[in-house]
Design a protein around this nucleic acid. Structure first.
Length: 489
RNA sequence: GGCCCCGUCGUCUAGCCUGGUCUAGGACACGUGCCUUUCACGCACGCAACACGGGUUCGAAUCCCGUCGGGGUCACCA
């Protein structure tokens, strides 16, 4: 069987990582079986069909490496891929439903329905809309006055509808629990439960993989598939993503949940894909790291958990570190560059010397660089003259007896060392410490703070060499000045 | 409230369908130690869970019932 899956977001303005995970499962399933992944924009209601929101979704997908076979920008045989542009298709389906007697005209007013709903609520009962009987005279009059009406689906009375869900298993519901639902508004626009079924059938979707919140929608949808004589697709409802450390649904208030936030921090698509795939899915008892290809080769809906998983930023961060280790120097430089540029820390255009310097910093940073934006948090002092001394580090490493003298003397060592590189610096500083009878820590740590402003960072000799003799000596001088100024104050 | 879904370490999960191999395994996080000029990396060790109560059975995390907890849905939203 040719597998066709789809992701059908409504363009609301941002891409929730829970939604991205659902999309990923769809994409993975299609790729796993050599099928097609379709992107459809569900903008039936939206007057707010913001083109910008669509662009955000498409960019997010591209960043993740989830390519779509049909949809916006690429087109396809079953387009258009915006529901707002598929009016004729819905109209034809609605006509068929009218002809077969599955739907009827509902002339009820909003006030009427609100009253019924309120009554149901007051009686602690579920509200179910049922067909109102209208006489021929009334009907004639409504038509004569062109009174607006909605099209409603006449839900059959005594049926049990069963969903054979690939994740949840068999789920049953009595049709008496389902009210007659509107499929077309008075203004002719279709509603989700209708449009979605028509489109899934028209686009030959074989597997509807979507958020769990749609599970209840599936019952009326199955009725719709049957009424339209469409073949039923397979269904799989993915549990929601919960907030960190909780079982509550993840929302904007739980910190970073938009994909763009992770992109902007400099996360890797490999890490994000790996993380999202493992959120609710596992291959076996111990596999954690999956490349995109490994995921495609091993993904299956049977191994998607039926219970909710909560978002775990720590795990994402760990995975990010693991994937960062595998990156080539070239990709690291390219990843880090936008952050340096944004802060004006590199000359434009970038020359060979600057690139070499960035490479040296990245090499010195090593595994400390987890996310691309770390280049700023961890290595800013390599790219600017302005050095900010971390107060804690100053207190811990510089405000000690003998530090001022030691710094003056080690400055002489730096002045004399030739050539000024790691291989020469290291033995020179060692010899200095030994000559003064100082433990290495009492030389290295103050020197690091003097030269970088920070208490933590790459190996000292790497820092010294990258910064260069002049800058190191300038900073030592500045540090000495700062120390004497605040000491006399 | 009716209906539906879900419930294993703090978190992601394995095990559950096809009861015994589970004194419940792996990973993240956390703690301790080693390495070490700091941090990070790496290595070693440790902490930590079958929601609760009944039942079935020689035996239950695994099967059944109930309770509690969480979630969804009951729109002319998607």
């Amino acid at each position: 069987m040719n597998v066709r899956t789809r992701f059908a977001p409504s363009p609301t303005g941002y891409l929730h990582i829970g939604g991205v995970r659902t999309a990923l499962f769809n994409w993975l399933l299609a790729r796993r079986h050599g099928g097609q992944f379709i992107l459809r924009i569900d903008d039936t209601d939206q007057q707010r069909h913001v083109e910008e929101a669509v662009a955000l979704i498409l960019d997010g997908f591209r960043w993740m490496g989830m390519d779509w076979d049909e949809g916006p920008e690429v087109g396809g045989l079953h387009g258009p891929y915006y529901q707002a542009q598929r009016g004729d298709i819905y109209r034809a389906a609605a006509d068929a439903l009218i002809a077969s007697g599955h739907v009827y005209r509902d002339y009820s007013s909003e006030a009427e329905r609100n009253a019924e709903r309120a009554a149901a609520e007051a009686g602690k009962k579920a509200y179910r809309f049922r067909r109102k009987h209208i006489t021929d005279e009334q009907l004639a009059q409504f038509q004569a006055e062109a009174r607006p009406y909605a099209l409603r689906f006449a839900v059959p009375a005594d049926r049990t509808i069963t969903i054979h869900d690939l994740i949840k298993g068999n789920v049953e519901q009595k049709s008496s629990e389902i009210g007659d639902f509107v499929i077309v508004r008075p203004d002719g626009t279709p509603l989700y439960n209708f449009a979605s079924v028509v489109d899934d059938a028209a686009m030959k979707i074989t597997h509807v993989v979507r958020a769990e919140e749609h599970l209840a929608n599936t019952f009326p949808q199955i009725l719709m598939f049957e009424a339209l004589n469409y073949q039923l697709p397979e269904f799989a409802h993915v549990p929601y993503v919960a907030a960190p450390g909780s079982k509550k649904k993840l929302s904007k208030r739980d910190g970073a949940v938009g994909l763009d936030e992770f992109i902007n921090k400099g996360y890797l698509p490999e890490a994000m894909m790996n993380y999202l795939a493992r959120l609710g899915w596992s291959l076996d008892a111990s596999s954690e790291i999956f490349s995109r290809d490994q995921l495609v080769a091993s993904f299956s809906l049977e191994r998607v958990n039926s219970s909710p998983a909560s978002h775990d930023p720590d795990k994402l961060f760990w995975l990010e570190g693991e994937w960062m280790k595998t990156l080539s120097m070239e990709r690291k430089v390219n990843g880090v560059l936008p952050f340096l540029r944004k802060e004006g820390l590199v000359a434009e255009p970038l020359d060979e010397a600057a690139r070499t310097r960035i490479e040296a910093v990245i090499a010195a940073l090593g595994d400390r660089l987890k996310v691309f934006s770390d280049i700023l948090a961890l290595g800013r002092y390599f790219f600017t003259d302005a050095v900010a001394h971390d107060p804690d580090a100053v207190k811990k490493r510089l405000r000690k007896d003998g530090v001022v003298n030691m710094l003056r003397e080690v400055d002489d060592v730096l002045a004399a060392v030739e050539p000024y590189d790691v291989a020469t610096l290291e033995p020179a500083v060692h010899a200095f410490a030994e000559a003064r009878g100082l433990p290495m820590g009492q030389v290295v740590n103050p020197l690091r703070v003097a030269v970088t402003g920070q208490g933590v960072g790459p190996g000292l000799y790497d820092c010294l060499a990258i910064l260069g003799r002049d800058k190191c000596r300038q900073r030592i001088a500045a540090t000495l000045e700062m120390l004497s100024a605040s000491a006399s104050a």
